[in-house]
Amino acid sequence: MADDLQSRRAVFASVGAGGLALAISACSGGTDTTTAGTATESAAPESAAATAGTSQSGAPQAGGALAKTADIPVGGGTLFKDQKIVVTQPTAGEFKAFSAVCTHKGCPIGSVEGDAIVCPCHNSKFAIADGAVTAGPAEKPLPAQEIKVEGDQIMLA
């Protein structure tokens, strides 16, 4: 009987460890990059990582560089998952920033596709120009976030 109990415990421990490994690998993101006019998804682009003004966690602090203007495609945007912010460039030289948390159910924004900021949970879409809802079920726009552009650097305000 004791051998059966130990065998069952070993099976449960193995299954638990395997499930944990699967969950960890599923949660670890990468960097997806697509062409101009669509999203670049990034935890922190190389240009920002090499710039002063980042905290020990790697997230830019207010005043720290988030990206270079060249990192944000015209007519599209870039998602910064770690900072929970989406930076867009609706027209050349015009930069906007919005929360990367959907106003419908609080899901993280998944991508920028052309002129739409897209939430993968329920397919809500928001305009890159002003964060307005273009497709529901979300009913409220994405809140604007403060950024400033100095030279070729985009910084959190």
Rank of each mutant, 00 (worst) to 15 (best):
A23K: 02
E139M: 11
I147D: 04
V15K: 00
H122C: 06
I85Q: 10
R9I: 07
L5W: 00
V86T: 07
P60N: 06
A70W: 05
E150V: 14
D115N: 13
K68V: 10
T31S: 15
D4T: 00
D3K: 04
I85L: 15
D71V: 09
A21V: 09
A67C: 14
G58L: 08
T54D: 02
P90D: 04
P143S: 14
M1S: 09
F12C: 01
V11G: 03
G16Q: 05
A70M: 07
S47E: 11
T54R: 14
H122M: 09
G151Q: 05
I109L: 12
A13F: 06
A59C: 10
T40Y: 12
S14F: 01
V112D: 00
A23D: 05
E41A: 15
T88E: 10
G136D: 03
T51M: 11
A49D: 10
K148W: 00
E150I: 09
A39Y: 09
D3R: 04
G93W: 04
A21G: 09
G63P: 00
G19A: 14
V133P: 00
A44M: 11
T38D: 13
S28I: 15
L79H: 13
G114W: 01
I24D: 02
L20I: 13
G75H: 05
Q89I: 08
E41K: 14
S47Q: 09
S28D: 11
A39V: 12
G110R: 02
T31L: 13
A44Q: 13
P120L: 08
A49S: 14
F126N: 08
E146I: 05
G64A: 04
G93T: 02
F95L: 06
A48D: 03
P141R: 06
S55D: 12
P90F: 09
A49K: 14
K81L: 13
V112E: 03
A62W: 00
